[in-house]
Design a protein around this nucleic acid. Sequence first.
DNA 1: CAGAAACTGATACAGTGTATCATGACACTC
DNA 2: GAGTGTCATGATACACTGTATCAGTTTCTG
Lengths: 142, 142
Amino acid sequence: MTLSARANPDLLATLEDRGYRVTRPRREVVNLLGQKQEGFSAEEVCAELPGVGRATVYRSIKLLLEAGVVCKLMLPNGGQKYSLARGEHHHHTVCVMCGTVGEFRDSSVERVLRTIGADIPGKIVGHRMEFYITCQDCLDTS
Amino acid sequence: MTLSARANPDLLATLEDRGYRVTRPRREVVNLLGQKQEGFSAEEVCAELPGVGRATVYRSIKLLLEAGVVCKLMLPNGGQKYSLARGEHHHHTVCVMCGTVGEFRDSSVERVLRTIGADIPGKIVGHRMEFYITCQDCLDTS
DNA sequence: CAGAAACTGATACAGTGTATCATGACACTC
DNA sequence: GAGTGTCATGATACACTGTATCAGTTTCTG
Ligand SMILES: [Zn+2]
Ligand SMILES: [Zn+2]
Ligand SMILES: [Zn+2]
Ligand SMILES: [Zn+2]
């Protein structure tokens, strides 16, 4: 298994490559996300970018999601967070105490998932997997 | 892997055992859910039970969730559905076309997940996993 | 049957995301 | 560098799912 740490992709270039215009609001969103090492919520981004409309923040995140450079995480309570996708297919851990997001890759999971997928009737179009944890910091603090 | 098919638990008895009162609204909710073989949304239940208040429907589903006899599913778009939990730990498939929910168990996944969990710093408190599919019916129809 | 405790449901609220649409900014050509 | 078509913005309103409140009702226990 790989606990990740790798360089951020150039989010702005990703948008440009996909034919979207480079605008001030998009630059601001993308710059902010580029700093964020942990997961973030859309509202959090809105709050930190008062110069960018809420709708635009949501739209930008959606574009980045579709481009595959941002991923969406589901929390146990139904909430959602986002996280930069640095590189290849991976999955996430979320601390249920503090919300910190981690990332990991594991080829054996993917292999098992492929095996299961072969037994499921119909066509697999994707999968989701998250670990809910109490992170070391939260364990230490309590 | 096991593609499931098994008897429904007695939902009402589950609530009773947990010290909750047996009331008409709860009976109605529980009876309806007992029929539902596929996933369902909370609003769908509300619509089918005009004699039960919306809040009560949500509250009842929450109690059944906590009791572990109902599970929550996350859809790719962030939506949520629920499904009866017939028996032991399992995971779900959701058709992205028609929304039909399936269920499967697989011990090798769980084994791999335990292995990964051992490498993740912190304490694992749960996990989530869903397959998104296009089901056979939807494939046939298109 | 009486009383305490739990439950209900109408309503209002909260959180997250989307639709609308008039206005403004971008990129490209000349 | 100005002109122009198209795309993007953001204020607002809306949609959806779930929760908080609270007066009034039902259930259970004794
Ligand atoms: Zn995977
Ligand atoms: Zn933590
Ligand atoms: Zn289907
Ligand atoms: Zn599992």
